[in-house]
Design a protein around this nucleic acid. Structure first.
Lengths: 91, 91
DNA sequence: CTGTATCCTGAACGATACTG
DNA sequence: CAGTATCGTTCAGGATACAG
């Protein structure tokens, strides 16, 4: 339980995961989808999710540099967890 | 989702809820069951849970003063949520 | 384009002492 | 017994500037 809360810790984290549950995203896409997050917080969150084994970072070849973020299988298993959080809050 | 995370926000909060899921408790009982929490943090968490509609405080008559904390029906519905958090972390 | 580095501020935490 | 008051410290968050 503490492990899960550690992985989801911090403001905005669940929103980032929610976006990635819909499909993989580039850094700029996430920035547009989540305008409330400063660059620092966004990259902090992405690094945290990668470190937790929830997401993966893929750098595409060529210039300018492009990056894609995608959930790992483990990360996709957070779907039901976020759903449980959503359900309790919605009632 | 943010609502749920708001109700569970803060270190130790889920541990307090977990204790109350097992049954109602007095303040001193909680203090013994959760020795890592200072008085301040424990009473902060209890007040937070009461404010969120998750727990109720009942003062028993007589001296010395005794208090019981119990989950509300809404609070008991957090059981599956905490279970989902537990399950993900355990795998 | 995709970040990192810095700095600042407010909130959370933790320990201790004290009260009805 | 059941808290509240106070205080110092630590930490997360936000803004901005800058770099590969």
């Amino acid at each position: 339980m503490e492990i899960t809360l550690g992985a989801l810790r911090g403001r905005w984290t669940t929103l980032v995961v929610r976006e990635l549950l819909k499909g993989d995203r580039g850094y700029g896409e996430l920035r547009e989808l989540l305008p409330a997050l400063s660059d620092k917080v966004l990259s902090d969150r992405l690094a945290q999710l990668v470190a937790a084994g929830v997401a993966e970072r893929h750098r595409l070849p060529g210039r300018p540099v492009r990056t894609r973020y995608a959930l790992t299988p483990r990360g996709r298993e957070l779907g039901p967890v976020l759903q449980a959080l959503w359900d309790w809050g919605a009632r």
